[in-house]
Every structure is written in C-alpha cells, then in structure tokens.
Design a binder for these strands. Structure first.
Length: 884
DNA sequence: CAGTTCACG
DNA sequence: ACGTACGTGAACTGA
C-alpha cells in the first residue's frame, strides 16, 4: 500500500474559509469563522483522502527569497483584514493542539514549502496531495500529484481537483506551461509584473502556440496581436523576471519530517478545550469522541539485591533512560527507571542493597554520558548525587526545563503537568489510587508498592514527554537555547547554590540591633504625634489616622481603602510631620523584618553561610529568580540599606569578591534589535546614553544638558524598555500627561527605528501569537487577542518588553555558562556565587584575581556579538558593599 | 489567601 | 472611556 501525504497551503485555505462562511464571533468576542471554515475543509478532505501524513504550510511576512534577489519586494502586500489576522494565532494553536505539523520559513512562501515537501515526498515514495486556494499551485500537478482547490459556499465545501491532464483539459496548457502563462500575464496580487498589454487570454494563446517563454520571445515578431508582439520584445527582461517570480521553489533547505507529519491523536483533550473555548459547536462531536485518558499506572520489574543491581546497571548503556530518585529526608529509598524496551524498573535501597552499595553501583550510570539520562528538575539530583558519588552527574535532558522553555508562563511543571500538556493524559490522583475521600496530597500515605508504581509511572511520563518536547523544541528553533544554554546552566546554578555566600554574623546582629533601637524611637515619636497607638504595619489603620483623624487629603486608590504607598505619602510629606516619620519607619521596618531578621533566619548556623535557591523555571522572560532568601533584591539604592551589603563577605581571608556588571545591557539590546543607528553609534562611541537622549528630547546641545534633564531622559529610556505610556511617565516624573506625551513624541521623532521596531513587534506578536528573544526564547501572547482594553494594552507592553529583557537574560546566562566553564577548566579556586540579572559576583581566590577579572570581563563581553559592544565593569572588594 | 507595600534589576 | 510601566520575592494584615 502506498502512503499518502496531504500538504495544505494554510494561508490561502484560511482565506477561502474566512470568506466562505459568515463572520462569527464567540462570546469572548474572538472571530472564529476562519478557524471553523479551515477545519471544515480539512475534515472533508481528510475523510476523502484518508492520508497517512499531514502538514500545513504558512507564509512568513517577510520579503521572499525570490523577491530579495531582485532588490526586495516592491509594492505592498495585500493586508489581511483584522478579523482574519487575529484568527491566525488561534488557527496555529488549534493545529498544534491537534498535533498537526506546521511549516514556515523566513524568506519563503507557503507555495515553496508545498513545492519542496511534495518533491521530497515523491522521492520517498509517498504520494502527495496538495491543497491550496491558489491556482498558482497548478504548476505542481503531474500524473501522480493531485492539486485540490476547495471553495466554501454557504458552509458547503466543494473542490476542483487537478492532475496534469485536468490542467491541460481546462486551460489548454500543461502544468509547467502554466508558469509561462503567468510570466506573460503577470499577477498584481503577487507583485509579478508580466508583460504590459498581455492578459490572461492572450498569454494562454501565446503559450499554447509556442509552449514556453523563451520560444515565444524568439518568435516575438510573429505573435499576435501586434501590440502584444511589440511589448513582448520590449519587455522580455521583465517577462523573464516574472517567470522566475512565478516559479515555485521545489528544493528549499527543509526536510520532510515523516515522523512529525504522521497523523496522530488529533481529537484530544487540548484540542477539545480549544474547540470549546472558540465555541465551534458543530465540531464538538468530532472532538468529544476521545476524552482525556488517565495515565496507566506502570507495572515494574523489581531489583532488590546487590548482585541483581550490579548486572542490571551494566545493561542500561546507550539507551535513553528516564530516572527518578526517591528520597525521604536525605535518605535514598530507591530509583525508578523507564526505558523503551525494558519498561519500568524499581531499584530498591534496603537490606540487600545498602545506600552505599547503591551509589557505588550507580556512579558509572550517572557520571558517564554513554548512559543517556532523562531527569526531571535535575538540579536537586545533581546536588544529592554529586555529594553521594563524588562527581558531577551528567544528565542530558531535564523535562521540567524543557516544559518551561516551551511555555515559560506555565504555573508549574510537575509530572502531572507534563502528562496533561504533552501526553493528553490526566495523571491519576491519590484519590483514584486510594479511593474517595483522600486527596492527591495523600501521596505520602500510599502503600509501599503503590509508591513504587507511582514513581515508575512518573519516569515513564518523563520518557514519553521528552520525545514530544524534543520535537517541539526543534520546530521552534529552540534546540540551541535548550541544549547549549539552559541545560549547562543547571550545573552552574547547582554549584552556586552549593557554595552559598558567607555572612558576617556579628555585623548582621549588630545591624539588626541598631534597627531595633531606631524603630523603637521612631515608633514612639509617631504615636506621640498621632495621639494614639496603632499597628504601624497596617495600611488600613494608618489610613484612618492620616486621612480621617488628621484630615490629610489622599484620594482613595486601592480596592480596600486609602492607599498609603510611598508615592502617595511622598506628596503629603510637607502636610504633616508624621508622614515623613512613617516613611522612615517603613524603611527601617523593611530592613529589619525582610533583611536582618530574614537573613538570620535562613543562615546556616554551622557554616554561617546563606544558601539561596536559584529557580530556572519561574519567570516569563527567561530570567532566573532567587528564593529563601531572595538574594537578588538586597538593598543598594538607599545608603542605610546599602550598608547591609557589608555583611556579605568572602568565605575566608584567602578570598575577595569580584563583582562584574553589564552597563546598560537592556538599552544595548534594544539598540541592536531595533537597529537604530543613533543609538548604535552612541554605544559604539561609549557616550552617556541618558545625556544623549536628553539632548535629543529636550533639543539642547549635548554639553548643556542639566542633571534634571538627564534624569528625566533616563526615565524615558526606562519607559521605552517597559512599553511606555504617557500616564505612567507623567506619574514617574511628576509632570503633566501632556508634557509626558511630548517627551515620548520627541523621543520617537529622534529614534524612528525604535518606534518602528516596537510597532512591528506588536504586529508580529498579534499575528504569530508569541514574541521571542535573540536566542528564540518564546513567550505566548494570548493577551493580544483580548477585547478588553486593559488586558490588550498590557499584552502590548509585554510584547515590547519581553524580547529586550529576555535577550539580556539569554546573554548573561551564556556568560555564566562560559565563566563557570573557564573557571573549572582553568583549575581555578574562584567560583561564581551570585547572579543579579545584569551582575555576577565571584568569590575570588586572591592570587587569581587578575586572571579571574579578565575571564569575567572577556566572557561577559563576548557572550553575544551584537551590533553594539557589551560593556562590563569589574570591581573588587572585601565585601559585596565594597565590590559594587 | 488576597491585598498592600517595598526591596532589587 | 477604559486605568497605566516590565520582571521578580517576602513580610505583613485582616477576611
């Protein structure tokens, strides 16, 4: 039986579908008729063709390869109406949910993709059926290749089908001659000029007689009518160009992914959810057939003794193994494994296999990368295993990180999330295993046997999910991001967490004590001014005192009552002496509770060090975050808080700190991405960027910029990075909204490419449904589809900010991996201990400090090659305070 | 457990 | 006319 692949031109079909059915919206106000019509056509054709493979191709909105060769696309492409444009991301989401492979490639049109994939399919003995709304595709028709052109009328879909002979019958020319016809007649919508004065009829007549363009040109003088003959001779170069433009490319640099295009589970839970969300009621039936499956609990082969385990480990080589290490407190209970042909295995640590024996046997498995291991949240394993086997394990795939890269806005990435997201399975809850009345959290009271089953099942989920993730990462162009940045970074973070940072305990206690004294004094002063005692930490009680008892005028700002936030109080500072004292109290209280008390509470008593956790799967932009404690928000802006940094010190006198930070990394990234010459040149010439902006925005010579102008310009620069709004800028600067608008307008007038970039980013994000960084980190942008002004505006700001913040995050992550590697490979004793978004702190062995400073600066500045230089400043000191 | 405030980039 | 800057984490209050 020969196999068949159906190749669909996504753009032209959705277009036909859109115009073929009435404009529909769901109750959220999203237009849905294009998606609906597309699915109708798809299902009808699939029912008829019963293909084994399926792929949908889309245009990318960029000059095409062919037009580029001729100096770019001239003229404007017909834009889609908004009602259709907003449906494109929904359609792509739908196709992804249905596990349908999509193809698109910068510089090529959907036509070219279909042309290429159909050629590849034929080479592989798969019969292609090409589906398009566009007659250009007829040039692909052959004796075996069928082109289908569907048309939807009042909800009914009909198709015209063409093999080569049908083309000849209908148009009197062969499929290949069809190209020559088009070369003569041109096509306004595709920007193909053709020959003036030759239309469809004449072109067909000429080609029927002369068969191809060159022959027709050679016989130009014989062509009739006379006007056509003259024009053909005169515009023969244009005709040749037109032929080139009209020819579909059949050898693009892409490959046909047979595995990926194989028709899989289209009618799954995710797709059903989406169909429901879009309210495509007549589709419900099709999708309901296949409800979410419950993950089947895996049986396992048990390994309980030393001898069994010894033999067992040796047989795991060269095959992918998903593993889960089960720990109770710090004692290892056992190891759950899953392999394709082996199935589930449970290795139990117990009487016949001691923990010590287990780790000895597991050492080669974990430390040799001939054993290909898939883990989940491997950072915790690296720390446990690293300590137990005395060597850093090598794990090739972390499924939590994979899930995060594919969707950084997920709420969590547990095993049950993987099952749902990647396998359309609901992970059995404790309830199902244990019977009613017990929640999933009752996992710990599962019986021993059930617990092992669960662990093995989780390993299987990781194993299966990894396969799908790897495919999706490749489709998204995120393979490098994942394997070269995120995976290696796990090891860096694991080391950082393990080293921790030393604290001067005595100094911290003193700091705490001083704060306590100051807080006592200021509290008494406040109470004597207010005439009564109240809870100073309660905004509610404070509001009553300030705005009711003392009668200060503060507009209601929050849901619950008066706002007493710092910016509000700042404005009331001169109205009553208490206000300033409140602000001071707040400062002290923050420092004491969050920092002094907080840090002491998490300090390890034995080592007098603080061990933070660096989370790699939290932020929507690709930054890392730090918790318990958060070491990324240690005070620096105000002097009193900054003093706290004196308690962060090197481990002992053999070490000092080197602190390296990127200068203006986000603005540099913006200059690069937007390609703004003014900004690029400024960075190349190492100019003061805020001063430059000030001179541009306020129309004053560079050297005459006042410090107020400079600081205002700084706020404008920040605003640009955050997705500016005039209201917020006016609030920030304490100016009128009108003035703020003028600043912004002046900024965009001076930096037109920035404005252009920001607009294009929003446009692209709306069409594609996501934004990306320079290293293809992605964030989905569903907010842009919202009908709610607030939500949509938020989406627009996010779309502008994410590529900037995210690319900066990519850069420092690359730098961290490189610095870590250089320190390890160079045999240095110095180590990376902290990252604060644009800053790295290294605990440096004093004898190595010059070399390490060089390593830092070089690796950070060379982490990325942008059109502007990256600039890194390195400072040395005996505390974080001194080194900053 | 949501809301408010405030520390950082 | 919407209600307003992007990304975090922690402490605290008061339902």
């Amino acid at each position: 039986m020969t196999e068949k692949i159906m190749l669909i031109d996504g753009n032209s079909i959705v277009n036909r579908a859109f115009y073929g059915v009435p404009l529909l919206t769901n109750s959220a106000g999203q237009y849905t008729n294009g998606v609906y019509g597309f699915l109708n056509i798809l299902f009808k054709l699939m029912d008829e063709e019963k293909p084994d493979y399926l792929a949908v191709a889309f245009d990318l909105h960029a000059p095409t390869f062919r037009h580029k060769e001729f100096g770019g696309y001239k003229g404007t492409r017909k834009g889609m109406p908004d009602e259709l444009r907003t449906q494109m991301p929904l359609l792509k989401e739908m196709l992804q949910a249905m596990n349908i492979q999509t193809y698109e490639m910068e510089g090529y049109e959907a036509d070219d993709i279909l042309g290429t994939l159909s050629a590849k399919a034929e080479e592989q003995g798969v019969v292609p059926v090409v589906v398009s709304g566009d007659r250009d595709l007829l040039q692909l028709a052959s004796e075996t290749l069928k082109v289908r052109i569907p048309k939807t009328k009042g909800g009914r879909t009909e198709t015209e089908d063409y093999y080569a002979k049908d083309v000849v019958e209908k148009y009197g020319v062969t499929p290949l001659e069809f190209i020559d016809v088009k070369a003569l007649m041109g096509d306004a919508s595709d920007n193909i000029p053709g020959v003036p004065g030759i239309g469809e009829k004449t072109a067909a007549k000429i080609i029927r007689e002369y068969h191809d363009l060159e022959n027709a040109i050679a016989h130009a003088s014989e062509v009739k009518p006379k006007k056509a003959a003259e024009n053909l001779a005169e515009f023969q170069a244009q005709a040749r160009l037109s032929k080139f433009l009209a020819t579909i490319i059949r050898d693009m640099p892409i490959s046909l992914d047979k595995e990926g295009t194989k028709i899989g589970n289209m009618f799954n839970a995710t797709a059903y959810d989406l169909v429901k969300r879009l309210e495509l009621k007549s589709m419900f039936d099709r999708f309901e057939k296949d409800e979410v499956q419950t993950t089947q609990i895996q049986d396992f082969h048990g390994v309980y003794s030393f001898d069994e385990a010894k033999i067992f480990f040796q047989n795991l080589e060269n095959k992918e193994t998903a593993y889960i290490i089960l720990m109770d407190e710090s004692v290892c209970q056992g190891l759950a494994l899953y392999q394709e042909d082996l199935g589930g295995v449970w290795l139990e640590v117990g009487e016949e296999l001691t923990e010590e024996q287990f780790f000895a046997l597991a050492k080669p498995f974990f430390s040799d990368d001939r054993f290909i291991k898939i883990g989940h949240d491997i950072k915790k394993d690296l720390k446990i295993l690293g300590a137990s086997i005395g060597e850093m394990p090598k794990i090739s795939f972390d499924t939590a990180i994979g899930a995060y890269i594919l969707n950084p806005t997920g709420s969590s990435y547990d095993y049950d999330d993987l099952a749902k997201t990647f396998l359309n399975q609901v992970f059995p809850s404790g309830e199902e295993v244990l019977g009613k009345g017990k929640s999933k959290k009752a996992f710990c009271i599962l019986s021993e046997e059930e617990r092992k089953n669960f662990a093995v099942t989780q390993a299987k989920v990781c194993f299966e999910a990894k396969k799908i993730m790897e495919k999706q990462l490749a489709e998204n162009g995120q393979t490098e991001l994942f394997y070269d940045i995120e995976m290696p970074l796990i090891y860096v973070l694991a080391d950082m967490e393990e080293y921790g940072i030393k604290v001067d305990k005595e100094a911290l206690l003193l700091y705490q004590k001083n704060l306590e004294t100051s807080i006592d004094i200021i509290t008494k002063e406040i109470f004597s001014l207010s005439g009564e005692e109240f809870n100073l930490n309660s905004p509610k009680q404070l509001g009553v005192i300030l705005f009711e008892k003392l009668g200060l005028k503060g507009g209601k700002k929050t849901k619950t009552g008066y706002s007493t936030a710092a910016d509000v109080l700042e404005k009331l500072k001169y109205e009553h002496p208490m206000v300033e004292k409140i602000l001071y109290y707040r400062q002290l209280a923050k420092l004491k509770s969050t920092y002094a008390d907080g840090l002491l509470a998490v300090m390890d008593e034995k080592t007098e060090k603080i061990y933070s956790t660096f989370n790699q799967t939290i932020t929507a932009t690709g930054r890392i975050s730090s918790t318990e404690p958060n070491l990324q928000n240690i005070p620096v802006r105000l002097e009193l808080g900054r003093e706290l940094r004196k308690v962060f010190i090197p481990e002992n006198r053999e070490f000092c700190f080197l602190d390296a930070d990127y200068s203006q990394i986000e603005l540099r990234v913006l200059a690069h991405i937007a390609g703004d010459e003014t900004l690029i040149n400024a960075f190349r010439n190492n100019q003061d960027i805020h001063r430059l902006t000030a001179s541009q925005v306020f129309h004053v010579p560079f050297d005459e910029v006042t410090s107020l102008q400079r600081s205002n310009a700084k706020a404008v620069n920040f605003g640009i990075v955050y997705g500016i709004g005039s209201f917020s800028l006016s609030q920030d600067l304490g100016i009128s909204r009108k003035e703020a608008e003028q600043y912004i307008a002046a900024y965009f007038a001076k930096y037109p490419n920035i404005k252009k970039y920001l607009n294009e980013t929003i446009q692209h994000a709306t069409e594609e449904g996501y934004v990306s960084t320079l290293w293809n980190r992605r964030r989905a942008m569903p907010e842009l589809q919202s009908n709610n002004f607030v939500q949509r505006s938020f989406g627009e700001r996010v779309a502008m900010n994410m590529p900037i913040q995210g690319s900066a995050a990519d850069i420092i992550k690359i730098a961290m991996v490189h610095v870590h590697k250089a320190l390890k490979e160079g045999g240095y004793r110095s180590r990376l201990i902290l990252q604060v978004h644009d800053e790295l702190l290294i605990e440096t062995y004093i004898e190595e400090r010059e070399a390490v400073a060089r390593i830092l600066k070089e690796n950070m500045e060379q982490a990325a090659e942008l059109s502007v230089p990256l600039d890194v400043e390195v400072h040395e000191g005996n505390s974080w305070f001194e080194a900053k």
